[in-house]
């Protein structure tokens, strides 16, 4: 499919508001199941035949694949609808529709807590919270729990109990932190993260250090071993194609990413022995010691 963008239709604010209204109404129908399949199908057709929709392939495909009553395609549509609703411009009608649906869903969401039986239900509740309050902490934490992809069915019930209890936001955050502490995949949290921050590693790099990369390290070795930041341009690999292999042989690679300047890399490496330290010090023109 050739790349194109319909600027004429998109830059017309009225057109954006029309699509927004249809997205809000579809969101409402999918959450509340108040509408008939026919109504859902009619809104879907309105949305996919809107010329603005065609500018956004992810949104368009998700909408085209939506089958009313099908959990997978419905789940897939929600984040696209939320993103579109928060992005498109308003007119008076869309503002009124947003206010009406927010009010309705705010009243309805607690009843949905009672009906939670599977992950899909939690996903919808998270999307509703995101709709009611863009960037909702509860919504984000529910999505982060979903992202952990945990298969234990008790987790859904625990979430349900928290939602139905008091101090929902605080207790959900605690539950998420408990799950993260047990998790062996993903990025480091807690003390490991704090050690690197205290050693002066930039937060954007700390955020990329995986649990896998530190699985054989103790807190002491992470805080006391020499830590190096290696920054080099892509063309260095033309002269020394095995340089990355050498880095891995001489240290524990905590993370690597593209450098802010173009066509370069940054590696954060921990060196636990003298041989490694001397290797990295030999590359002093591209290496700096951290902490």
């Amino acid at each position: 499919m050739s790349a194109d963008f319909d600027f004429g239709n998109f830059l017309d604010l009225q057109n954006q508001a029309t699509l927004k209204i249809n997205c809000i109404r579809l969101f409402e129908h999918l959450c509340t199941k108040d509408g008939t399949q026919k109504e859902v199908e009619a809104l879907k057709i309105e949305i996919i035949s809107d010329p603005i929709s065609e500018n956004f392939s992810g949104f368009y495909e998700a909408m085209k694949n939506l089958k009313s009553g099908d959990k997978n395609t419905t789940s897939n549509v929600f984040p696209h609808l939320n993103l579109m609703i928060s992005t498109l411009n308003d007119n008076d009608v869309s503002k009124a529709e947003i206010a009406r649906v927010k009010k309705k869903l705010t009243k309805r969401v607690e009843h949905l807590y009672d009906e939670v039986v599977m992950r899909h239900d939690i996903w919808i509740i998270a999307q509703i919270h995101e709709f009611i309050e863009n960037g909702s902490k509860l919504g984000i934490n529910l999505l982060r729990i979903m992202d952990l992809n945990l298969t234990d069915p008790n987790i859904v019930m625990e979430i349900k109990n928290i939602l139905k209890g008091t101090n929902v936001e605080l207790n959900m955050e605690r539950f998420l932190n408990k799950l993260l502490a047990q998790e062996t995949r993903g990025f480091i949290t807690g003390e490991f993260r704090q050690i690197l921050l205290e050693r002066g590693v930039e937060e954007r790099l700390v955020n990329l250090v995986t649990k896998e990369s530190v699985k054989n390290l103790t807190k002491e070795s992470l805080s006391k071993s020499k830590l190096f930041l290696i920054s080099f341009k892509e063309d260095m690999l033309d002269d020394e194609p095995d340089f990355v292999d050498k880095i891995i042989q001489n240290g524990i690679l905590l993370t690597s990413t593209a450098s802010e300047s173009e066509k370069g890399f940054i590696f954060l490496v921990l060196s636990t022995n003298d041989k490694g330290v001397s290797f990295f010090k030999n590359y002093h023109h591209i290496t700096s010691e951290v902490g």
Binding site: F5, S57, T87
Partner: peptide
């Protein structure tokens, strides 16, 4: 079909 929505 080529637009992306990005937060800034």
């Amino acid at each position: 079909m080529s637009g992306n929505i990005e937060p800034i």
